[in-house]
Design a protein around this nucleic acid. Structure first.
Lengths: 239, 239
DNA sequence: AGAATAAATATTGTATACAAAAAAATTGAC
DNA sequence: GTCAATTTTTTTGTATACAATATTTATTCT
């Protein structure tokens, strides 16, 4: 693969548009971050499974880049907690212990609860309308039994509330923690019982937001994730 | 410097002990992490100042390593928020806007407040004794007007309470956020008025911990950092 | 002299080469 | 046939080389 330079993602910063017209897209994002993003997606979407070693030569050739930017990207992913670096053995996809995932989910709840407190103060009417709209889209996805779409809209609602908090540090940390527990939340989403409970709580979340009731919103969000980590811990016992 | 290979930090994983006896120390930590740690210290200790570009050749030669591990280390520090990567212009020491520091300090308070809630449940008597001992050491440092020691013991107390929470995600995120606001907290520590207030609140913190009063401990910690970011924002107005 | 432009210099970004370590495969003994 | 030891191969870790970009200096024109 690496023999043919024309198949490279990007040798320099920009596509020189040599030859075909379809390669006209200007790539602004540094190669390291492109690579990190692609590998991050592979991990989150389970194309690379927990515990699986990330062989540098293979991945770098798949992405048509050299090992250098890949290795730099793996350092980013390791700091994000998605990858684990083992000395002289390279990187493996992180395989957090159930207790680790539980701790992260609990912390995530604390962050979202705090975001809820702030959100009721800072939300514009438009903000609330947008969250409400996402809620209805989510209900639609539920009726159509579209679990993936439901899951993504669910995430959008939570991320949306955090964004309304206007606290940049909170937003950043929420994103990272959310990536770390993405798999656990997705797996939980597959349970129908959980699905119904989730809907009910979301109705309360929307109501609290619309009424700008910070205490109520915070309280619901603080406990909203409990069943998720309860499931994680249950599954852990079975092995 | 780089011309003489014998002066390198470590070419491989281990010191081969070739020649002199004093180089017998086995270096276990991967070079990237050593480098990241050294640069992190430089930043936190203000040897590298905010906004200052990190010239790879200069720093790498200073540390007697090649640019490769340094660059990988900078990716780690960028993900930690201590360094900012600018495309085609390398890395500069992060220079967070005052509002960014404020947001981080607020979030740090939220984390510590939650840590307080957990701590009263999980703390052993030994844990509480250790925090209390640190408190007295801190009082001693205050009487001796040793601001640096005071500051470090203050940090140890807060980190100690977080560690008692036994929540690994909480502990990790607290460490990272704390690094990000380290300078702001240190600068604040130089103000005498703040010093006295801090002492008073710490007495309450210790009492609440000893009495295992989670609500009280949480409430104090939630507001303990407010004057720090108030100072940050005040100073920002003056420019 | 001062601004605009062009050449020179330095710095970062990426790829590759080499060294060290780990993993896999082969060989030999029992 | 299985286990152990040794060789081979593969993989990671680090350094260096080269390319692309940015910065500085020099030069020209007004």
């Amino acid at each position: 693969m690496a023999e043919d330079p024309t198949t490279h993602v990007s040798t320099g910063q920009f596509s020189k548009n040599e030859g075909a017209e379809e390669t006209a897209v200007v790539i602004q994002l540094p190669l390291v971050h492109q690579v990190a993003g692609l590998v991050r997606d592979m991990i989150v979407q389970d194309e690379l499974q927990p515990g699986e070693p990330i062989r540098e030569r293979i991945i770098s050739e798949t992405l048509n880049v050299s090992r250098t930017p890949l290795r730099e990207g793996l350092k980013i992913l390791a700091t994000e907690g998605l990858v684990e670096l083992i000395p002289n053995r390279g990187a493996i996809v992180a395989e957090p212990a159930p207790a680790e995932t539980r701790d992260r989910l609990i912390l995530l709840s604390v962050l979202e609860a705090f975001a809820g407190e702030l959100a009721v103060n800072f939300a514009t009417n438009q903000d609330i309308d947008e969250i409400t709209a996402l809620h209805y889209e989510m209900l639609a996805a539920q009726r159509r039994k579209n679990r993936l779409l439901y899951f993504k809209l669910n995430q959008d609602i939570h991320s949306g509330i955090v964004r309304i908090s206007r606290n940049s540090a909170l937003i950043e940390n929420h994103i990272r923690l959310n990536l770390q527990v993405y798999r656990a939340r997705y797996r939980n989403n597959l349970k129908s019982t959980e699905w119904r409970r989730s809907i009910r709580e979301h109705e309360k979340i929307i109501t609290a937001l619309q009424e700008r009731n910070g205490d109520a919103l915070s309280a619901i969000l603080r406990r909203h994730m409990d069943p998720v980590w309860a499931t994680v811990m249950e599954e852990a016992v079975n092995f």
